[in-house]
């Protein structure tokens, strides 16, 4: 058994949140640079130039790369040999988020869904835990903006719809979102599981590096075919038309029921911000 003080988790989440709010992931920045290079549309090219300059300014001035510093999504894979001491896990995560959003001058974007009154400190975070083998804790931190989150969808397809149905659902979601979610988007897809786990798989998919293929060849083929069809839509950067509408499609898969084929499509904007740490 390994004892981990929850203060350590709070401090780690704090550092991850501060860094994530300001910096795009290196794989996202690389994909944006590549999209800029191959772009032929004038307005889309102008948009890429603005975005690349913005990423530089955010880094230099240590200010949020996007003002939507998101709802904090925190995934923890906790080794079952870990014993957590000194307070509740959720309290520790929220403490890290609270301090980072204050010290980083981040926008507090969390509110009551009915009254719309802001909680004032960007908590609570959306916290997911998985118990895994070992004595380590892997933390994935994803500040999720809602311009793109709003364009996400969950489909309960019929099993007969198969791979073509899955690809169709992915492309349709991006098409109907159009210019609204800040394209070029990064598309996270959950395939299978139940209604709830399918959505979680889609969220996990966007924590993968942009461009990283699923190790399963059949799933990787769905990713590349969906990406090809999305980019043929011609929505382009910011909806200004162009060659790149998505930077990548990332699918995660799980067994499902004999009667169903759930497909969740979680849209991430071009500001991919994601941190990973192991305690």
């Amino acid at each position: 058994m390994r004892i981990v003080n929850t203060k350590k988790i709070a401090d780690t989440v704090y550092k991850m949140a501060l860094h994530a709010g300001v910096n795009l992931t290196p794989s996202c920045l690389k994909a944006l640079n590549e999209a800029h290079e191959i772009e032929s549309g004038e307005a889309a090219k102008f948009a890429y130039e603005t975005l690349l300059q913005n990423a530089k300014v955010a880094c230099e001035k240590n200010m949020p790369v996007c003002q939507d510093t998101g709802m904090a999504v925190v995934m923890l894979e906790i080794g079952q040999e870990v014993f957590l001491e000194d307070g509740l896990l959720a309290d520790a995560v929220n403490d890290g988020v609270r301090r980072a959003y204050s010290d980083g001058y981040f926008r507090k974007s969390v509110c009551n869904p009915i009254t719309r009154v802001n909680t004032g400190d960007n908590t609570p975070a959306a916290i997911h835990t998985e118990i895994v083998a070992g004595d380590k804790i892997k933390i994935t931190y994803l500040p999720k903006g809602f311009g793109s989150e709003n364009m996400s969808k969950l489909y309960m397809l019929k099993p007969a719809q198969g791979v073509e149905g899955i690809i169709g659902a992915i492309v349709e979601t991006v098409k109907s979102a159009g210019s609204r979610p800040c394209p070029p988007v990064y598309v996270g897809v959950g395939i299978g599981g139940s209604f709830d786990t399918c959505a979680y798989l889609a969220k996990k998919a966007i924590t993968r590096e942009v461009g990283e293929k699923n190790p399963d060849k059949v799933i990787a083929e769905i990713e590349s075919e969906a990406l090809k069809r999305i980019n043929a839509l011609g929505i382009g950067c910011q909806g200004f038309h162009g060659n790149t509408t998505a930077l990548g499609v990332s699918c995660e898969c799980a067994p499902t029921h004999i009667a169903g084929l759930p497909v969740a499509v979680n849209i991430q904007c071009h500001c991919v911000r994601c941190e990973k740490e192991i305690i």
Binding site: T50, N54, A55, K61, P64, V65, C66, N118, C182
Partner: peptide
């Protein structure tokens, strides 16, 4: 340009809350 928050923040030379301060951001 959506997502260019830092750049736009730097294009703002003066900012003043003129109404509904309770709504924060």
């Amino acid at each position: 340009i959506g997502g260019a928050g830092a750049l736009y923040g730097n294009a703002i030379k003066k900012s003043e809350c003129i109404a509904f301060a309770d709504l924060l951001s």
